[in-house]
Structure formats: structure tokens, C-alpha cells
């Protein structure tokens, strides 16, 4: 019997240094994540140069830990998959050059993986993907609806025209005075308040699957500003809950419309903001109502990790899509079908 393919995955696109070993495309033998959040907290956000410095210090330690925990040697590994982009260029470069050097040392193929493809494939680690399917990708840099007919076929049917959801969350967090990282804190605060304020929802043109969150963000800022001028106060938990409801409302409604239009009954939620409890709850409810099978990764697979990169890399491996020695970190990499 042919042994199952084993992929070593590496991810350094932002502020997590991560490595993982995946067997047969689905079994997580190990997934190690070293977060730099504590270091960036004092700056109120990720500082690219500091992120890059941490990555270069951590990279071999994390890869070693992943291989030790998985109990594999280089002889067991079939390929090294690494996030090629998008992300912070200096951060990406550490992962890409480490992957190329490790692969060169042991004559292994290298696979370049798109970060968002990774987030989508995090779902495959939960249960095997079945096609066709719709994915809602929500993170600090992305808000996209992607339709997939087959492994590696991505059809972008809608995206944000201004801020990504995660970005809007961080800005709102700053406005109501919550420390970095703001998103999870807004989510937590929202659970303690009533959504009493009717913030605007940007539906855009009829039939559009695009998103816009800048108007909503401004409405939140204006509400707080006006209240302050009048000498009154709006409870931050009410702001948080109302904002969260407006965001979920638009995301869920458009996603369910897309699911219906494309005639699929499989739906995935992907990306860092998939950890948001308000969104998870609202989407699950809508999916249940419509009889749609929804997959949401556990929290550990929503945020940046290398297991998802190795998983997406597994399917590139199956199709023989290898990178060469010239593989580079590409901050604005487009999601292309393979």
C-alpha cells in the first residue's frame, strides 16, 4: 500500500510563525503556532519590521517542534508548502526562504500556497469539502464570497469595495477605546449589550454580492461623536452589539442569497473573523433555516495557522503544481485556480 502523502506547511504572512505536518490531506499530525501578539500589543497593531524580526528568530524552532510533535523525519515528508501571499512582504519572505532552503537541503518539492486558499481549506480539515460550494471569507484583509465547483477552482463572486470586515472591527474597537486586538473584544462586548441602534447596512446595487463597511464604520464614529457633543453617553456594549448585528446582517443575507443563486447546499465560513461568535451564530441559524450544510472551522483553525496551508498544499501536490527556486513572497498575490 502506498503511504499517505505527508506535507510540511509553513505560514508567516502576518504576526504568527506557524508550522504543521498534515498526512493524507486531512490528518493533522501537528500544528504549532507562535503568536507575536504580546509583542505588537504595545504598538496598537502589527508592526511589519518587528513581525519580520520575530519570524526569523522563531522559524526553525517552530518547524522543528512541528516535526518532532508529528514524529516525522525529512524522509517521511513529501513536500514543503508555504504561504506565498498575500500578507506583509517582509514576513512572507522569511517563510518562503526558509521553505526553499529546507526543501533544497533534502531535495523536496516546494509548493506556494495562497493564504486565502489556506483559510478555505481549513474547512477540509473539519470535514471533506463537497462541491459545488460557497465560501464566505472574512478576515483582517479580506471579505469575499468565493464559489468553488472543484478542488482548486475559485470563482470570486463578491468582495469588499473598501474596508475588510476585520479592519472595520479594529477601527470600531479603537473608537470605543478597546485595546488591540480589537475584533475579539468587540465581539465579547457585543454579547453583553442590546443592539438598540439601527446602523446603516450597505446593500449596494440590486443583485450585487459586493460588500462595503466604510459607511457603517463612519456611522459608529458619528454616533459616538454626536453623543459626546450633547454631553450624553452611549453604552459601548450597545454600540458593539448594534455594529455586530449590522455586520452579520449584511454578511449573512448576501451569503444566503449567493448560496441560493448558485444552487449549492454546501457553505463554508473561513478566515480570522470566522472566530466571531455573532457571525458564527447568525450564519448557522440562517443555514439551518434554509437546509444548507454549513462548515465552520474550530477557533484554532480560523486564525492563521500552517495546517490549513499544508492542507491546501496537499491538493496542489496531487496536481503536481510545484514552485521553483525562484518562489517569492508576493504581498498582493491574486487567488488563482489550480
Amino acid at each position: 500500500m502506498k503511504k499517505e502523502t505527508i506535507i510540511l506547511g509553513i505560514e508567516t504572512s502576518c504576526d504568527e510563525t506557524a508550522a504543521a505536518v498534515i498526512q493524507g490531506g486531512r490528518t493533522i499530525l501537528s500544528s504549532i503556532i507562535s503568536s507575536q501578539m504580546e509583542s505588537h500589543k504595545r504598538f496598537g497593531g502589527v508592526v511589519p519590521e518587528i513581525a519580520s524580526r520575530h519570524h526569523v528568530e522563531q522559524i526553525t524552532l517552530i518547524v522543528e517542534e512541528a516535526m518532532e510533535k508529528a514524529e516525522v523525519t525529512f524522509e517521511d515528508i513529501d513536500a514543503v508548502a508555504v504561504t506565498e501571499g498575500p500578507g506583509l512582504v517582509g514576513a512572507l519572505l522569511v517563510g518562503v526562504n526558509a521553505a526553499k532552503a529546507i526543501a533544497f537541503a533534502h531535495d523536496l518539492p516546494v509548493i506556494g500556497v495562497h493564504h486565502i486558499a489556506g483559510h478555505i481549506y481549513a474547512n477540509h480539515l473539519v470535514e471533506p469539502l463537497e462541491f459545488p460550494l460557497m465560501t464566505l471569507v472574512v478576515s483582517g484583509g479580506h471579505t469575499e464570497l468565493i464559489y468553488m465547483k472543484e478542488h482548486g477552482e475559485y470563482e470570486l463572486i463578491g468582495e469588499t469595495r473598501d474596508d475588510a470586515v476585520g479592519e472595520a472591527y479594529d477601527k470600531v474597537a479603537r473608537t470605543i477605546g478597546l485595546p488591540y486586538p480589537g475584533g475579539p473584544r468587540v465581539d465579547k462586548l457585543a454579547q453583553t449589550g442590546e443592539a438598540d441602534i439601527d446602523f446603516p447596512r450597505a446593500w449596494l446595487e440590486e443583485g450585487s454580492f459586493d460588500f462595503s463597511f466604510s459607511g457603517l464604520k463612519s456611522a459608529v464614529i458619528n454616533t459616538l461623536h454626536n453623543a459626546r457633543q450633547k454631553g450624553t453617553e452611549v453604552a459601548p456594549e450597545v454600540i458593539a452589539a448594534s455594529f455586530q448585528e449590522a455586520v452579520s446582517d449584511v454578511l449573512v443575507t448576501k451569503t444566503m442569497r449567493a448560496v441560493k443563486k448558485y444552487g449549492t447546499d454546501r457553505l463554508l465560513l473561513a478566515g480570522g473573523v470566522a472566530a466571531n461568535s455573532g457571525l458564527r451564530g447568525a450564519l448557522q441559524e440562517a443555514a439551518d433555516r434554509e437546509g444548507i450544510h454549513l462548515t465552520i472551522p474550530p477557533l484554532s483553525l480560523c486564525t492563521d495557522n500552517a495546517a490549513m496551508i499544508a492542507c491546501a498544499g496537499h491538493f496542489l501536490y496531487e496536481k503536481g503544481k510545484f514552485a521553483d527556486d525562484r518562489l517569492n513572497g508576493v504581498p498582493g498575490l491574486a487567488l488563482e485556480s489550480f
Binding site: S52, I59, T60, V94, N97, A98, I102
Partner: peptide, 19 residues
């Protein structure tokens, strides 16, 4: 150059570790 130095150092340490 910060980025330049990191490319060589990352390549060297990763290859050395792997070997």
C-alpha cells in the same frame, strides 16, 4: 538592508538546521 540581511540569514539558518 533589514530585508536583505533576513533573506540570507533565513536561508542559511534554515538550511543549516535541516542539515
Amino acid at each position: 538592508s533589514y530585508t536583505g540581511v533576513r533573506i540570507g540569514v533565513t536561508t542559511a539558518k534554515s538550511m543549516a538546521w535541516a542539515l
